[in-house]
Design a protein around this nucleic acid. Structure first.
Lengths: 145, 145
DNA sequence: TAAGATTGAAAGATCAATCTTA
DNA sequence: TAAGATTGATCTTTCAATCTTA
């Protein structure tokens, strides 16, 4: 193991990053459950499908929704039971399967979105000045590259 | 629901924040498992105990390690089985229980720390300029308050 | 009654093995 | 053989109810 390690300041920032993530996502998840909407996991799947134009291959959806492959199979099972999505085998490559959002799925997303977006605004976005936004774009771009 | 919502830029930043968190923590967790060290969850518990001087009440540990109360009970069960921690009832308030790090726990932490810290350096800290650090301190302080 | 913590039952996530098509 | 995806078995997390002490 290379013995290079973060300095104290950067390690503290990392801890704050973890804390911020946990606090915000816990509250976002709670908000949806309390209001009787889809769970945050389902919401994330639906929003990715919506943003992609309605359908995505399971493996692409897995990456975009930040859910491990085998977990996603189970998530999509449950979502299919609730008629939020349907699976369709691809005609191009018959190994691939598309998860497709249904009208029911779109309705559930529309119902949940205002509350969720208000949460993102309240817990995250409203705290960011324009300077903060520029800084975060710069930093996060480096972290995800 | 107040219908105030984040603008497109801030919503994209939020998505990047989620992506960065998932990518980094997944890899940090993998690193530890691959090398045969304690899991990232155990590591987080051990580091909090260490930083607190060796022991913490279950409910305080729960907040610091970002683990829900009832989950923590199970985590500490498993850690006790591996002799990484021991529970001790408080003498002040006999409702409280302290989780205490053991010599075995300290050894496991020492063994895992170089690899973990190298991961934090590689995936997070090394990407941050001094300007970035200042910006993140400012932003994250607002988010966790 | 309430705070601190744990537990049984149930839900969710994960690994390794498997299935199907390329 | 490998890519895409799912599944059985297992592990972990979570909720609601419970236990203990204040």
């Amino acid at each position: 193991v290379p013995r290079r390690r973060p300095d104290r300041e950067r390690l503290d920032v990392w801890q704050q990053f973890l804390t911020a993530h946990a606090r915000i996502t816990d509250e976002l998840a709670d908000d949806l459950v309390q209001a009787g909407h889809v769970s945050l996991v389902f919401y994330d799947v639906l929003i990715q499908l919506q943003q992609a134009g309605g359908k995505l291959r399971m493996s692409d959806l897995s990456e975009l929704a930040l859910i491990a492959r085998s977990s996603l199979s189970r998530v999509v099972d449950r979502m299919e039971n609730e008629r939020l999505v349907v699976r369709k085998r691809s005609d191009d490559d018959r190994r691939s399967i598309y998860a497709c959002i249904t009208p029911t799925g779109r309705a559930a997303l529309r119902a949940a979105a205002p509350l969720h977006l208000y949460g993102v605004q309240r817990l995250f976005a409203q705290h960011l000045t324009d300077t903060d936004v520029v800084a975060l774009q710069r930093v996060l771009a480096k972290l995800v590259s």
